[in-house]
């Protein structure tokens, strides 16, 4: 029987013979060369979307792997980040960078407040409440009474004064300009997740997930660590939201929608929950699949089939499965090459 496993091992950054730090730095540095390697802006824009989805998926995977909590409604925090940035720049008149930082901080505070209420609830209730919250916010941004701030169902054009690291607002619509930002954000959030997962806090979270009662009898409060983990996941979604606002130059109530949440959840599961690379690559694969199948006119149908196939055939996710299979295949291929020679 196929079973999705949520193990209690620390999140893994990946494996290989090179020292991990050197490998990670090399991958990070090479990432900046991607726009030069891809001469098609179209492919780069798919990658951008994939990484944005991957950052969202990272937040979901972190919470599932470390706490056993399924954040079904991550779009709530994604939307708050995006709308927060748009409103702070337009209504608040803040320059781009301070607005982005403040929007992420506000999203963190919002996650903290929401988490304070819901992290104690049972898993099903937790899932449903986060889902309902997204729908609630979607309606809230659409209601006529708030149109002066949110522009209702029409959404908001993102516009800010000045520059962010030398780029004006319209520059971010160019995928090559946007890429370094989303790449840095994906790597930065991945690093942050890895550091937390491998710290005593991460170990505490996994132990609480495994046996909350025993943790209390070992002298641990179990509420605050889960609340902090939830806030972290929400803040990460806020980062993705701000980046989404920059990349598209537009925010709308659909950002809070169910599709955003389910896509991120499926990307996390597809890529695999137990590694940092899994959700990010899951996001890229999912975005590529949506685009490819969308061109055929059956985006949701084929993407759904592909997700089912991946989950059934690779219950631990793409990254772990490929990481297990590929070395053997490569060794076999190399051996065959030597025999032929």
């Amino acid at each position: 029987m196929t079973e999705l496993t949520i193990s209690s091992q620390p999140l893994r950054a990946g494996s290989g013979r090179l020292p991990r730090v050197a490998l990670a730095l090399a991958v990070f540095a090479l990432g900046f060369a991607v726009p030069a390697l891809l001469d098609q802006g179209y492919l780069l824009s798919i990658l951008n979307k994939g990484l944005l989805l991957g950052i969202l998926a990272l937040g979901i995977a972190f919470l599932m792997h470390q706490c056993g909590l399924v954040l079904f409604g991550i779009a709530s925090f994604y939307g708050v980040g995006a709308y927060g940035f748009a409103i702070l720049t337009e209504t608040g008149g803040l320059p781009g960078l301070p607005a982005a930082i403040l929007a992420i901080a506000l999203c963190g505070a919002f996650s903290f407040l929401v988490g304070a209420v819901i992290v104690r609830t049972r898993p099903l209730a937790f899932m449903m409440i986060t889902l309902a919250l997204g729908e609630l916010l979607r309606h809230l941004t659409s209601i006529p009474e708030l149109r002066g701030i949110t522009h209702g169902v029409d959404g908001m054009i993102v516009n800010f004064q000045g520059t962010i690291l030398g780029y004006e607002v319209f520059d971010f619509l160019d995928p090559a300009v946007f890429w370094p930002f989303v790449w840095t954000a994906a790597c930065g959030t991945g690093l942050m997740m890895w550091l937390v997962a491998n710290s005593m806090v991460g170990r505490t979270l996994r132990a609480i997930k495994e046996n909350e009662e025993r943790m209390r009898f070992c002298g641990f409060g179990t509420y605050l660590p889960r609340l902090l983990a939830f806030s972290l996941a929400g803040s990460i979604a806020g980062i993705a939201g701000v980046l989404q606002a920059l990349a598209s130059g537009f925010v709308s109530p659909e950002l809070f929608g169910l599709v955003t949440s389910t896509n991120a959840l499926l990307a996390a599961i597809t890529g695999g929950l137990a590694s940092i690379a899994g959700p990010v690559l899951g996001g890229v694969a999912f975005a590529a699949a949506l685009d490819e199948f969308g061109a055929l006119g059956y985006s949701q149908l084929f993407t759904g089939i592909a997700v089912v196939v991946v989950i059934v055939a690779m219950p631990r996710g793409l990254v772990v499965t490929l990481g297990t299979i590929l070395p053997g295949l490569l060794a076999r291929f190399a051996g065959k090459g030597r025999d032929d020679a």
Binding site: R206, A207, E210, E213, R214, F217
Partner: peptide
């Protein structure tokens, strides 16, 4: 401090 009637540990750690 206490231990439990049914073993209560952290199996994944």
């Amino acid at each position: 401090s206490r231990s439990f009637q049914r073993t209560s540990i952290f199996p994944g750690l």
